[in-house]
Design a protein around this nucleic acid. Structure first.
Lengths: 353, 353
DNA sequence: CTGAAAGCGCTTACAG
DNA sequence: CTGAAAGCGCTTACAG
């Protein structure tokens, strides 16, 4: 009954011949036997090699049989032969984070148009998981890796270098160990946010960031502090107790005789967290508090005062990281890096009405 | 200089011995030669096989050398031998869509704890891309596939069946061709939303969904219509002109002598799109219009009237799809399906204040 | 114009 | 207790 249904559909779609091959794995050998030639010839024909010195009729018969049997080359066998898998390993903190999944999509597209597939893994900001994923992907013979590393991963970078597997770091860089890297000018991004807030009359500006050794985040904070000096009010929150820490920071910022009148938050997740708490306090944005966030998300668009944010050129970052990786795969010497500018998308959350 | 830095770090981390192996691919053969035994023995030892009849000293030497050389087994070679790659292919409409990336993360975890990795691809709701991805992944010898299919993919389902590759459909089902499937009770989910709106005194309810043959979405609409009968006001929007169509539907719903007082939207992306347009019209939620959306997103939390939504049990769906797939990989006969209940998360957007 | 053979890195039944 | 050999599915230099 089920088989009948399938058969029916195949008939309709003109796949009749495939039915005969149902479930039987067809290899180059199957075709060779069917046609009565060597596997050598089958391989040549199917790969369009030595076309000029292969009998046209034989070639045609090979192609026909291959089509009839719906031959699918075994890429694993090719990979073993070529020592090349046409696979890229992507390691991010969490593929469910919109920043990661947006980048993943761009990398997927760029990889695909170059014949590569991508295998992914989430590190949850853990050094150990990162190391495991690196080894896993190396075992699986990926041709290269694109990685957003957690903090304190000098060891992993060194390990990657000595492994000989081409890789490019994205988002988070480790300048102490020269590596391929693609990211943004974080210092300048923060500067854009702060100068904008200042230009709009904000005097006392708070910044919320993670307590971390991650350079790209610290650069964002440094960008703030260099502009505000002693007037900078910094709140560092732990990744383990983000909600409480953000709440505490905001409470501290808003109390005392010099409450802040503007807030800059250095990541999308932190910004959402901060906005939720600000909402719960009934603080009105932007009148009581101006806010600038980081990265694009639908939540910022739908907020009652659409949120001003620092926009990263996701497409550029994703594409460039693949390009650099493919370069490194082709010729693994020297390192390349690309640092993109960001754009401040100004909306109501930071502009007094 | 760079080399010095790396060396330094390796010394610190006690990887001195690895340095000597820098860039040299080490195989089982390398170890065999170094120890002076056959590759057979190396393989047995490293895989803990025939432990009882292998000389303890030899085994120890093999292990030591393997560790010193930081031997990493070539999984491609193992895959070829075992006809098994321990890889799952995941095909979604767009990995950048939060629904997809959340599911992806759960699938990743569940797969990993069973020794599987996951390779992904986005179909952009295209039949052709889906077919290409299926073939690509089959060529790459994935052990199984988890797929959210676009509409009109009967052919692809039949193709998958005849390929013999185990697969499970998620989110979108094709009951005409019995297959492994994991999803939710879409009809009931819509019912939950509508009964809630009715219980809150809403009389005239509009529903926005895609114009599609996708069963799961039509089930959501059917769930509405079966409750409201002729009072149901349905707006179907094209996936190609979503923004305009949503705007047109809402304009139509809100005009005339019987404007709607409540709106149910059947997907997260559509809900966000609808909310943006409603905002732009200055319509106040829930007082002028109650809204119930679908799926979880930060945007719903941060909305000035936190949005009531139908919550899918993402973890259940993700885990179950992997479990069923692994079952099918182990013993590919018969089909399993799992249909989960949803939960209506009631918040301000649908409750008159 | 065609095919036997080696080899990619692994595993394992078999023989000793 | 150990190893030579075959084989997973492919490619290709080489010989004819």
């Amino acid at each position: 009954m089920i088989v009948e249904t399938i058969k029916q559909i195949y008939l309709e779609h003109n796949y009749l011949l495939s039915i005969t091959a149902m479930k039987t794995k067809v290899s180059i050998k199957t075709i060779a036997e069917q046609v009565g030639v060597s596997t050598t010839l089958v391989s040549y024909v199917l790969n369009n090699k030595n076309e000029n010195r292969i009998n046209k009729d034989v070639a045609e018969r090979i192609r026909t049989v291959a089509r009839e049997l719906n031959y699918q080359p075994n890429q694993i066998a090719r990979s073993l032969k070529f020592q090349k898998t046409f696979t890229i390993g992507l390691i991010v903190a969490d593929i469910a984070n919109p920043f990661s999944s947006q980048i993943a999509r761009i990398i997927e597209n760029e990889a695909k148009s170059n014949g590569y597939s991508v295998i992914f893994g989430s590190s949850d900001e853990s050094k150990e998981k990162t190391k495991d994923l690196i080894n896993l992907f190396i075992n699986r013979q990926v041709d290269g890796l694109i990685i957003a590393l957690p903090e304190n991963c000098e060891e992993q970078v060194a390990y990657l270098k000595q492994s000989g597997t081409p890789f490019v770091l994205i988002d988070r860089n480790y300048p102490s160990i020269p590596s391929n890297y693609v990211g943004i000018d974080n210092y300048d991004a923060a500067g854009k946010a702060i100068r904008h807030l200042q230009a709009n009359g904000h005097k006392r500006i708070g910044v919320i960031s993670y307590k971390t050794s991650l350079l790209h985040l610290n650069e964002r904070v440094r960008g703030v502090v260099d502009l505000l000096n002693e007037n900078a009010v910094v709140g560092e929150v732990s990744i383990d107790h983000t909600n409480e820490d953000v709440a505490n920071a905001i409470d501290r910022f808003m109390s005392g005789d010099q409450p802040i009148d503007a807030l800059f938050v250095t990541t999308n997740l932190l910004t959402i967290c901060a906005l939720k708490y600000i909402n719960s306090l009934g603080i009105k944005i932007p009148d009581q508090l101006a806010v600038v966030g980081f990265d694009e998300t639908d939540a910022f668009d739908l907020f009652y005062a659409p949120v001003t944010y620092v926009k990263q050129p996701m497409a550029d970052i994703g594409k460039k990281s693949v390009r650099i990786l493919l370069d490194a795969i082709a010729k693994n010497d020297g390192v390349q890096s690309a640092v993109f500018d960001t754009e401040l998308i100004v909306r109501q959350s930071s502009v007094l009405s």
